[in-house]
């Protein structure tokens, strides 16, 4: 894969690791949170409000020398469905894919229903993804339907 243009250079400046691109600016730090990036000892570069042809502005995270499983990365789809994962090896993008919402989200979100058992017991939350495109989730416990604009991180 050839490296051309300034934008690609920002991405390619990483020798090995993962670039999470096209993150909505207001979700950037939530993505950091979901993936626990603040606890990593790897080299991490975070950019926000970078110009993007498709989104206007975007956020971007580069993590050096890491290999995260797809399931882990897909967890961010709930708040950043537009995010694109680039796997970098020797300065080249060897794999590129959009994040995909998994069928179940375990212990990532908080239920919006104050009367839900998951808000009243020390336990993991669990949501089923009913519609991955328009992001419609259903709490496994109280069966409350949650839409994307109502999503609250745990």
């Amino acid at each position: 894969m050839s490296i051309q243009g300034k934008k690609e250079l920002v991405v390619a400046a990483l020798q090995n690791g993962i670039v999470i691109d096209h993150i909505p600016c207001d979700s950037l730090f939530k993505v950091v949170n979901i993936l626990g990036i603040q606890n990593l000892e790897n080299g991490v570069t975070i950019g926000n409000n970078l110009s993007s042809r498709s989104m206007g502005k975007k956020g971007l995270i580069k993590i050096a020398d890491i290999d995260l499983p797809k399931e882990t990365l897909n967890r961010i789809a709930v708040i950043a469905p537009s995010a694109v994962i680039n796997i970098i090896k020797d300065y080249a993008v060897v794999e590129k894919h959009k994040v995909e919402l998994p069928e179940d989200l375990i212990d990532i979100l908080k239920c919006n229903n104050p009367k839900c058992i998951s808000n009243n017991e020390p336990m993991k939350t669990h949501f089923h993804v009913m519609d991955g495109k328009n992001i419609t989730l259903k709490c496994h416990y109280c069966e409350r339907i949650v839409k994307q604009d109502e999503v609250v991180l745990k």
């Binding site: 229903n113 009367k115 839900c116 058992i117 998951s118 009243n120 017991e121 336990m123 709490c139 496994h140 416990y141 109280c142 069966e143 409350r144």
Partner: peptide
Amino acid sequence: RHPLEGAARY
């Protein structure tokens, strides 16, 4: 019987 929703499933 429980006042909280989802209690039985949990």
